[in-house]
Design a protein around this nucleic acid. Structure first.
Lengths: 140, 140
DNA sequence: AGTATATGGTTGTTATAGCAACTTTAGTGC
DNA sequence: GCACTAAAGTTGCTATAACAACCATATACT
């Protein structure tokens, strides 16, 4: 498409859509959406983060994170508890089911990452990150 | 963030979010959302496309396009008419207001594109597109 | 102590994004 | 000409994304 060639931002956007669409289908059988998976990946690394910490780590609006966590709680993958010393915040814990889920999902995301990088050298990856970083800085 | 460094797809996703967020704010005063703007850019190039053609050109689901066009119609930028030879389809036309809008938005998007490309050589841009294309093909 | 401010979460609204199921209309095959 | 299939749009559902406004609790400052 012409737009896609003229505007690099649209090119990046389309690539992102393609990638998201793929991983979404991979995760669907596990009842997990792509961004919900990012939250889970944080928790598999370090259980017991607060909502706010998750929002900062994912560079996301706290409203989105709150809603994602609500959904993950509904699905039974996490639970939220109020710490005694600060009744404003909520700490997020994995449930047993949430912990088990990692055994399936982590290999799946590793495989996805390998697929994405297929045929691309480390040099190229570094170059890609370097240019994307430059682009981000240009508008920030 | 660790996730961002380990998974190139997340890196791309974050870059896209940053870009989208920026252009969204630029377009907001004109009562136009980023994806709505893509539709308008197509129409400024070629008025009188069908909904289906727009969906194909933008590589988007027809349901999204239908809803975007509904919103653009509500805003008064386009109108939709049924061609006599095929009562299933809808042809999309710019209104006078929609045409006028282009005078403001097109320069704005050009400026945005220049900003995004700031400090990046044509070689780097080509390289970026090449690698992103490879990545897209890997999951398609 | 008491006001002011800051922090952590929630709710509401708008805009993508894509799937499934559906309606209406057009074209095909016999 | 009738049944079948294909095509174009619409509706409903779930999941992001971000902003504004809000509530409750903590902290700071006087």
């Amino acid at each position: 498409m012409k737009l896609l060639d003229e505007y690099i931002s649209i090119f990046i956007h389309q690539t992102d859509l393609t990638l998201t669409s793929y991983i979404k289908k991979q995760l669907a059988p596990y009842n997990l959406a792509p961004e919900q998976n990012l939250v889970m990946m944080l928790l598999w690394e370090k259980d017991g983060l607060t909502q706010n910490e998750i929002a900062e780590l994912l560079v996301k609006d706290k409203t989105n994170v709150a809603r994602m966590l609500f959904n993950l709680e509904q699905k039974g993958f996490i639970r939220r508890a109020c710490p005694k010393n600060d009744r404003r915040s909520l700490i997020v814990y994995l449930t047993e089911e949430g912990k088990q889920l990692g055994n399936h999902i982590i290999p799946l995301t590793e495989k996805f990452n390998e697929l994405v990088k297929n045929g691309i050298t480390n040099e190229e990856l570094k170059e890609l990150k370097r240019i994307l970083t430059k682009i981000s800085h240009n508008v920030t």
